[in-house]
């Protein structure tokens, strides 16, 4: 495991993966561009990516200096935007489809006047990144979860083991283990049998 900033072989993007991103040797990262918005410098392990996990083009780790992202084993990130100010945890065997947004923060204060102040400060900065203003609400996604395409997971949401979130759903409330939810905002439409035999 490389300890310093490194590049991806044959990458079209000239940038590097930050040194505090810990990627298992068996994991596949398509491009270092996925880490171009990773600004976490405080923590020694800001991002961990586990055994057999893959992150394809379109996956973005948009992580503030205080953020921490933990991706488990055999996870498929097929173009997922992870917006993290505090904590995002994704369990093992979880499948995430394209244009999924997982956010633990709105990246802006609730009050308009505070947002104005933030935008004025950003315009004086280089690069003009949004920085954590409020503590984020951790998002936990369990093992064996399947997120359909263009799903949005809002701050503070916990998704239980084995659950399925239908395409284009917006998840505002916690999802129980072994259920199927869908809709915008998402609601439960079915229960799954956790011990259904493999045929």
């Amino acid at each position: 495991m490389a300890k310093s900033a490194r590049t991806v072989p044959e990458d079209w993007y000239p940038g590097t993966i930050p040194s505090n991103v810990k990627i298992d040797d068996t994991a596949y990262i398509e491009t270092a561009y996925s880490f171009s918005r990773c600004r976490s410098q405080i923590l020694p392990e800001a991002v961990t990516i586990g055994y057999g996990t893959s992150a394809y083009l379109g996956t973005m780790f948009d992580i503030a200096p205080t953020g921490r992202v933990n991706v488990g084993k055999y996870v498929l990130l097929n173009g997922v935007w992870i917006i993290c100010d505090h904590e995002v945890i994704i369990g093992d065997y979880t499948l995430c489809s394209w244009n999924v947004v997982i956010m633990d923060t709105y990246q802006a204060p609730e009050s308009s006047s505070q947002r104005r102040m933030m935008l004025q400060q950003i315009s004086q900065r280089s690069p003009r990144n949004l920085e954590a203003m409020n503590p984020g609400k951790p998002v936990h996604i369990g093992n064996n979860v399947w997120l359909g395409f263009e799903v949005c997971i809002l701050p503070g949401v916990h998704i239980g083991e084995g659950a399925i979130v239908g395409a284009r759903s917006v998840v505002q409330d916690n999802v129980e283990p072994y259920t199927i939810v869908a809709g915008n905002p998402a609601r439960r439409i079915k229960r799954l049998d956790p011990i259904e035999p493999i045929t």
């Binding site: 935007w81 947004v101 956010m103 308009s112 947002r115 263009e150 949005c152 284009r168 759903s169 915008n184």
Partner: peptide, 29 residues
């Protein structure tokens, strides 16, 4: 209008006016 916050994956259709300071949650149509 001014001070509007619009989240990711939002769709805003023809003829819409969004008033000042409104907050559009992610994924809204």
């Amino acid at each position: 209008e001014d001070d509007v916050w619009i989240g990711p994956s939002v769709t805003i259709l023809k003829g819409i006016t969004i008033g000042a300071g409104a907050f559009i949650e992610p994924g809204s149509v």
